[in-house]
Design a binder for these strands. Structure first.
Lengths: 344, 344
DNA sequence: TTTATCCGCTAAATCCTTTTAGCAAATAAG
DNA sequence: CTTATTTGCTAAAAGGATTTAGCGGATAAA
C-alpha cells in the first residue's frame, strides 16, 4: 500500500512552493501570473505520478464538498428510482456526487436526514418533502443552501420546486373513463395530505362534477402494508357494488387494487371493468383489461431539477426568485382499440 | 445564519482545554481519567448549545468518514433498489452513511466510480462487480479496504461475497415446468457472462439433461434497449414454434418477453403457455397464465452484506478469511391450482 | 528521604489543503 | 535617478478536529 502523494511532494520534486502548485491545480495560473513553463511542468508531473488532492482537506478548507443530498420518499419506488438515476447521471457529469436516502414520508426521519446532510456538508438539497418539515427546510434556505423541492409542494416553504400538473392528469384520466361510458368511477388514494395527492383528488372530482356524477373515494391509510391495503380495497369493492371503473392514485395502489379485484374473479380481471392509474408501470400493458395510465415525465422532472440545482450551485448566478415549474403529464390510453397517446 | 460552534468554544466556556473536550466527546473520559464531574459538565453544555463536531475536520484527522460506497448494477432495478434500501436502513442505524451509484455493468464506469469513492474516502465498498474490474478491486483489498461483493462472483477477486444459489433456483424452476408436462422449454437470458447468469443457464441445462430434453436458449445482447429486446424475443418465438414453456433469466426479461408473446395473441397471453421467471415481481400474480417465480431472498442478502461489512469495519475484529455466503432461493409456484410455496 | 506511581489535565503536533498578504527583482513612468 | 508598477513566486495562516507526549503536584512504596 504505497502511501498517498501530497501536494508537498509535488512541490518538493520541482523545487517550488506548495502555494504555486495549488494555484496551478486550481486553474489560477494565469490569474496569479505563474509562467507557462512552470505551469506545464507541474501539470506534467501531477499527471505522471497520478497525484490527486485530498478531498477532505480541500473541503475542510473551502467549505464545499461537491455533493448534493437527494431525499426521496422511497428509493425502491420505480418513479423515484428512475428520477434518482437520471439526476445521479447528470450530477456525476458535472463533477458532483449524489448522496441519497428515503424519507418514508416521515417528518422526524426527514429532519434527522436533513441534519445528517448538514453534518456531511452537502452543497445542496433536493427533497420530496413530507408534511411537518417546513421549519427545517426554511432554515436551510435562510442559511443560504440551495434547496429544490420535487414532486410535491408544501405550504410554508418558499423555494424552487418541480412538480407535475396533477390536477389535469387526474382530470384527463377520469374524463377518459367517462368518455368510455363508465358512470360509477371510484378513486382509490391514500389518506396522506401530500399536495400531489390532493390535486389528483381534485382533478377527479372536477371531471365528475362536470357530468353531475357522484364521487366514490377510498382513502387507504399510508402506513398500511401490502396485505392491509389489499384487504381495505377488497372490502371497499364489496360495499360499493355499483362501481364500474376505478382510477388509482398511484401505481403501487393500482397493483394492489388489481390484486384485490382479481380475488372476485378467479378467472382473472373482469374485462368490462374500466381501470386507470396515475403513474404508469412497465407491466400495465400486459394486463387485461389494459390499463390507461397518467404517465409522469420522469426525464423532464429529473432534468429540470438538476438544472435548477446546478444553476443555484454556481456562484456566478445571482440567487434568482423561487419559481415553481409545472410539467404536463401524458395520458396513455390503452384500449382494445388501437392505442393512441395524447398529451394532457 | 448563526456561525457554527467549534470545539474551542466549548472549551473556552468551561475553561478547559480543547483536548479534554475532545476526549470526553470521543468516549475516552474514563480511559484518560477525566473526572466524572467535568465529564458531565462538558456533556451538558454540548447538549445545551447543540454543538456538533465538524465531520470534515474529524475525517481529515482520523482518515475515517463513516461512509460506505455501494455500487449496484442499476439502482432503478427493483431487485437492487430493495437491497439498497435495506442496506441503507441498517447502515444509518449504525451511524454509517451510504453513497450509492449504478455501474450499468460497465467496467470503465465502475473503475471511475471506484476511484471516485477512493477520493471520497469511503470506509468500505459493497460492489456488484462487472467483468474487467478484477485489478481495481484487488487493489482495494490489498490497500486494506473492506470489500464485499454481492449478487455475483468474479474469478480473480478473492474477498467476501454474498450470492444466491442460482443453479438450484433455475434447476427447480425448470423441473417444475417439466413436472407440469411441458416438453419444449426455452430459456431466455442475456449474453453477458456474469456468473449468476451462467449459473442459471447451467441449472436450466441440468434439469433438461436429466430428462433428455433439448435446450433452446436465446441470448439477448445486454445493451439492447426495451424495443430491441422485444423484437429479438418475438423473432425467436417465430423461429422456434414448438416451444410450450419459457423460463426467463431475469424479471425484466420476463416482462419484455410476455409483451412479445402477447403480440401473437391480441386476446392476451395464451393460457396454455408455461411461464417461469428468475426473480419475482409484484405483478406476476396478476397475469394469466400466472407466472411461477424464483424469488430471491433480498432481505437475507441485504442483512448478510451489511453484517459482513459492519464486521469488517470494526477494528476490533481480526481480518477474517474471505468467505462466500450462498443463500437459497424460493420457488413460488403460481398455478390455477391453489398456490403453494416451496423452499428450494 | 528518595524514588516511583498516579492523577487530572493540556500544549503542541498533525491531518492536507486553500488563500491572504507580501517579497525581491525587473521594468516602466515621471 | 527616483518612484511606481509589474512579474513570478512564496511564507504563513486558516480550516476544525484528534492524538501524542508530558507536566506538576500528591500519594505510595522502598
Amino acid at each position: 500500500m504505497k502511501k498517498k502523494l501530497l501536494i508537498s511532494d509535488i512541490a518538493k520534486q520541482l523545487n517550488v512552493s506548495i502555494t504555486t502548485v495549488s494555484f496551478i491545480l486550481n486553474g489560477k495560473a494565469k490569474e496569479k501570473r505563474i509562467s507557462d513553463d512552470l505551469t506545464e511542468r507541474v501539470q506534467k508531473l501531477v499527471e505522471e505520478v497520478g497525484y490527486r488532492p485530498n478531498q477532505l482537506a480541500q473541503s475542510l478548507r473551502t467549505g464545499k464538498t461537491r455533493t448534493i443530498g437527494l431525499m426521496v420518499e422511497d428509493i425502491s419506488n420505480p418513479f423515484f428510482a428512475n428520477i434518482a438515476r437520471l439526476i445521479e447521471e447528470r450530477a456525476y457529469q458535472e463533477g458532483y456526487k449524489i448522496v441519497y436516502c428515503s424519507t418514508e414520508d416521515d417528518s422526524d426521519r426527514t429532519k434527522e436526514l436533513i441534519s445528517m446532510f448538514r453534518d456531511m456538508h452537502v452543497d445542496g438539497y433536493i427533497i420530496t418533502p413530507p408534511q411537518g418539515v417546513e421549519e427545517d427546510v426554511e432554515k436551510l434556505i435562510k442559511d443560504g443552501f440551495p434547496v429544490v423541492l420535487v414532486d410535491r409542494q408544501v405550504a410554508g416553504i418558499h423555494t424552487h420546486c418541480v412538480i407535475v400538473d396533477n390536477l389535469s392528469g387526474a382530470y384527463n384520466a377520469t374524463a377518459h373513463l367517462m368518455e368510455q361510458g363508465y358512470q360509477n368511477i371510484a378513486f382509490v388514494t391514500t389518506d396522506s395530505r401530500q399536495s400531489q395527492m390532493l390535486q389528483r383528488l381534485e382533478g377527479y372530482r372536477k371531471a365528475l362534477a362536470e357530468k353531475q356524477l357522484e364521487p366514490a373515494v377510498l382513502e387507504v391509510p399510508y402506513r398500511y402494508d401490502a396485505k392491509q391495503m389489499l384487504r381495505k380495497i377488497v372490502s371497499f369493492f364489496e360495499e360499493t357494488e355499483s362501481i364500474d371503473a376505478v382510477l388509482f392514485a398511484t401505481n403501487y395502489m393500482a397493483v394492489r387494487g388489481l390484486e384485490a379485484i382479481s380475488q372476485f374473479n378467479p378467472q382473472g380481471l373482469p374485462a368490462n371493468l374500466g381501470v386507470a392509474s396515475y403513474d404508469d408501470h412497465d407491466v400495465f400493458k400486459l394486463l387485461k383489461p389494459t390499463i390507461t395510465a397518467v404517465a409522469q415525465p420522469t426525464e423532464a422532472i429529473a432534468n429540470h431539477v438538476i438544472n435548477l440545482m446546478l444553476h443555484l450551485l454556481n456562484p456566478k448566478n445571482k440567487t434568482s426568485e423561487a419559481d415553481t415549474i409545472v410539467l404536463p403529464t401524458q395520458l396513455i390510453i390503452r384500449n382494445s382499440t388501437p392505442r393512441k397517446e395524447v398529451v394532457a
